[in-house]
Nucleic acid binder design. Structure first.
Lengths: 227, 227
DNA sequence: CAAATTTGTTCGTTAAGCCTAACATTTAAG
DNA sequence: CTTAAATGTTAGGCTTAACGAACAAATTTG
């Protein structure tokens, strides 16, 4: 079985591959059937069937009750889907004036139906961007791997001054909250303190100078690099 | 059964409705099952089943072996699909640098998956265009009917000076030929003569001044209005 | 106008992707 | 370490949109 173009995979297969890949982008733990089912809004039995089929196509390795791992071919498809998704998000924001909390769902649908040509033209129009509106790295057309990842704000040492490099796009409502706070990719801030049992991280941001308290979910969603 | 949004119809149903509507946009003859099957690349039995289902949903009227007619609800959906298609084509050409012979297939896929929001944003970005790159009228968001239609070049009286108002997008190869000849919407020309048995229409175009002979398929694909 | 041809319809089947229910395995708790 | 709980798998069905084969109706032709 040859390398097949993205378009030869069913939408469901594309989603499975992207999700498996995404699970390991920011944390090392491999994904499970039930987590996949929950994220995709389907039953575990559906995912179990789907994974079996992907394994038959040589896109993942999986023995019953075993872990789910992408093959090289599967990873290539997954990365291509991620590239599509993130270029679309960038295009919707930069060209069509979407806000960063609106783009995820639209991109989720379009990533399956736009042609490679359209992806290339968007990429060119945008000047070959390397990050999407949430700061997530956009893989190149050759599937080149991601940029440096940074660490979660919740794990950054107190006292350090850092720049936001990405903010997880999982929760649009949280994104709107960050917009209100003036937190976005490239915002610089100083980590004031972590208060462990309250699960609160306090940061200081400039212009205007202010202190912000962030709970665990917020400080896990924000990734930073030292500046 | 209430008026349902476009997105609640299957892609197949959307295509059926659009095709039925399109058949009567430029010629009065209603469409047949076999023509639909041929255009959609499926078997007549598939179309026959599909039409029956649309009739059950109140989107077309059709008795077995009878003619196929859109209901008001069906027409509204069809026009919404046509609007989507033509706005997409316009967007791809104006914003992403597609040529007019490339856009049809891309729009054909995307029209089923873009959100109403995206359609609105493209429409705004484009300044609410009223014609697509082939000159076809773009229905408004309210489904307002089309612009004046003009007549086929093959039916324009010799001696008249006219402007091209639309060129059928059915055949990309023919569109590339027209590009070479410098024929596009809004090009002005004078009809020199029709030679009936040769099925050739000769027209004179300015800048640079030149005579062009067009066969029947070409002069049927071009629609003109008096200037 | 009767026969032949074309056109349209019905019906049984297939494939994908989902479901529920029943069952199997693994992991966690007592 | 054994049982209970959680997780994963299999089996059987449903729906949609396609197909081909067989049949029905309408149209064209001789």
């Amino acid at each position: 079985m040859d390398v097949m173009p993205v378009s030869d995979l069913s939408h469901a297969a594309q989603n499975y591959l992207k999700l498996i890949w995404s699970a390991t982008e920011w944390s090392p733990a491999p994904i499970t059937v039930s987590v996949m089912a929950e994220r995709l809004g389907v039953r575990p039995s559906t995912v179990s069937d789907g994974i079996k089929k992907l394994a038959g196509q040589g896109l993942v390795t999986h023995a019953p009750y075993g872990s789910i791992e992408l093959t090289d071919a599967g990873r290539a498809h997954a990365v291509a889907m991620v590239r599509r998704h993130r270029l679309l998000e960038t295009f919707l924001v930069d060209v069509l004036g979407y806000s960063w909390d609106e783009v995820h769902d639209e991109a989720e649908v379009l990533e399956h139906t736009v042609s490679d040509t359209l992806i290339d033209r968007m990429d060119r129009k945008l000047g070959h961007p390397v990050r999407d509106p949430h700061g997530d790295p956009i893989p190149g057309a050759d599937g080149r791997p991601s940029m440096p990842k940074g660490t979660q704000l919740s794990a950054a040492a107190a006292g350090n001054t850092v720049a936001i490099t990405r903010i997880s796009d999982a929760d649009p409502q949280m994104l709107r909250y960050f917009t209100e706070l003036g937190l976005a990719p490239d915002t610089r801030l100083t980590v004031t303190e972590h208060r462990p049992y309250a699960d609160v991280t306090t940061v200081r941001v400039h212009e205007p100078e202010r202190d912000i308290d962030l709970g665990a979910s917020a400080s896990d969603a924000i990734w930073v690099v030292a500046v």
